[in-house]
């Protein structure tokens, strides 16, 4: 019995190659390939699958939301996150959202297949060697930094995160201090250089 795998990834070359690779395995097969979060969620509702492989960077939604919704809809099917941004803090957030594994896209096929085969929410696995952030920011500070990186100012950041304006300003100040910069824009660029966030993405 081959285990069907659902792929949600907007990167066509990688998704199609992985789909073909799954079909070539004696114990796995590709159930479906979705290039958007919307397609992925509707396919998940319509097609049986044993494991889902989800990219965090999707054109229409936050991949972490997709992970959470798939996990909620079918807790028995483990979710493997496959991302171009293999970062330690992102791994934590993915596992918290219900992922069973967190892997970088540059990992070899054998490792990816092994992770898909052994994915188990009870024993979450994270790609070894993920670099911890060189600057220790709190979860909230990272949230604020991500908002800044999307061009939001303090007041919009506050309303998006559901915190008060003063609290948001406090977080921004502490982010600037920890990164040793003067302006919010410099903070975004410095954080991107350090790999804390990726400008243009939600992470």
């Amino acid at each position: 019995m081959r285990r069907p795998v659902l792929l949600v990834d907007d990167h066509r070359v990688l998704a199609d190659s992985l789909a073909l690779s799954l079909d070539l395995q004696p114990d796995l097969c590709c159930a479906a390939v979705a290039h958007t979060a919307r397609d992925g969620l509707s396919m998940a509702a319509a097609i049986p699958y044993a494991v889902a492989v989800v990219d965090l960077q999707l054109p229409d939604a936050d991949g972490l939301d997709v992970v959470a919704r798939l996990h909620e809809a079918r807790p028995a099917a483990p979710i493997v996150v496959l991302t171009a941004h293999p970062k330690a803090d992102l791994a934590q957030r993915a596992l918290a959202a219900g992922a069973a594994a967190f892997l970088g896209k540059d990992l070899g096929l054998a490792d990816i297949l092994a992770a898909i085969r052994s994915a188990d929410p009870a024993r979450p696995q994270v790609q070894p060697g993920l670099r911890p952030s060189p600057v220790a920011l709190t979860h909230r500070e990272l949230d604020v930094l991500r908002q800044l990186s999307q061009g939001r100012d303090a007041s919009r950041t506050a309303s998006t995160l559901g915190i008060s304006l003063n609290t948001a300003r406090g977080h921004i100040k502490s982010v600037l201090a920890k990164l040793g910069v003067q302006t919010q824009l410099d903070a975004v660029v410095a954080a991107e250089r350090l790999g804390l966030i990726t400008v243009g993405s939600r992470y």
Partner: peptide, 12 residues
């Protein structure tokens, strides 16, 4: 990612 995809094809 594209080169990763290409590598998968080579592996296969």
């Amino acid at each position: 990612p594209e080169l990763a995809g290409a590598r998968m094809l080579v592996d296969n």
